[in-house]
Design a protein around this nucleic acid. Sequence first.
DNA 1: TATTGTTATACTCTATAACTATA
DNA 2: TATAGTTATAGAGTATAACAATA
Lengths: 162, 162
Amino acid sequence: MADELLSPTDALAQLSFAVLGMLERRAAQHDLSMAQVRLLGVLRDRTPTMNELARLMALDKSSVTGLVERAERRGLVLRVPSVTDRRSVLVRLTDVGSEMVAQAARHFDADMAGLLSLLPVRDRGVLTGLVSRLLVAYANQHGVNLFATATEAAPGIPASPR
Amino acid sequence: MADELLSPTDALAQLSFAVLGMLERRAAQHDLSMAQVRLLGVLRDRTPTMNELARLMALDKSSVTGLVERAERRGLVLRVPSVTDRRSVLVRLTDVGSEMVAQAARHFDADMAGLLSLLPVRDRGVLTGLVSRLLVAYANQHGVNLFATATEAAPGIPASPR
DNA sequence: TATTGTTATACTCTATAACTATA
DNA sequence: TATAGTTATAGAGTATAACAATA
């Protein structure tokens, strides 16, 4: 019974690298960067202005201009002029973009199920339950609301300063 | 008892974003990018050649040239000509780089402890124990050995294709 | 005047391809 | 010939600062 266990820090860090590595590989299969995945994820259930998008993704608005521009060039999103404020532009998924993010989400979901299947059945719910409670407590502490979907997350990630 | 729980996928994904977000913020405090943190982490207990470094970080050797060049310019690493093969160059941490990665690791360790402290004491060990076992199983399945230290990890991350 | 979005510019990070020096 | 490393080049992603259009 070689009970070699990792330190709490290593356990959490390495799990996180493994999980996001899987997400990144799924994204790469669709020729998407993590930044593009985040963009599409945020747009899954919103049609924000460029400004709101920048806030949601915790990026500068000039960064979002480029991100949306590249996604638009690929036919994944559309810019729609706002009718209520002629300065504003709404961004929304195209059907193609919508299908791509849905498909990537299904694949990633299978990845996570496969990962959890490495644990005995009785432990899987325990793990995800504890993680859920941890995240709820974290969200409460930070006045942040949890995101409905996985690929949408990442507002937690400050998008690499310098 | 509002037992709102996340789906397994969301729980794992959001935990991962939160954890790596914390690591990224700590790195930013030292004016380090995640790529630089990975570099310093790998060099914590090695003095590889440029070629070995590229393999360890799963990057092209030309990418490593730039990464090391910027780190060297900041005094964090040193290039040392190999004495056994005049084509090769060894890369090692300077004292400054060594101290920086140690300090960042201590801070990140505190972050993880703080995160876990949101759970009842009795649950903390359960969570990290389950994660450890999950990672051990994952590593066995992939013929990968686990990394000794958190900041070293990331070979799992394919370093953004495209 | 203030806000929205874009543009100009600069830097990091990554890759591919071509090159030099050494083996 | 083969390998180690660098350079040239290109593109994504990020930021700051300055700008035009609109509010």
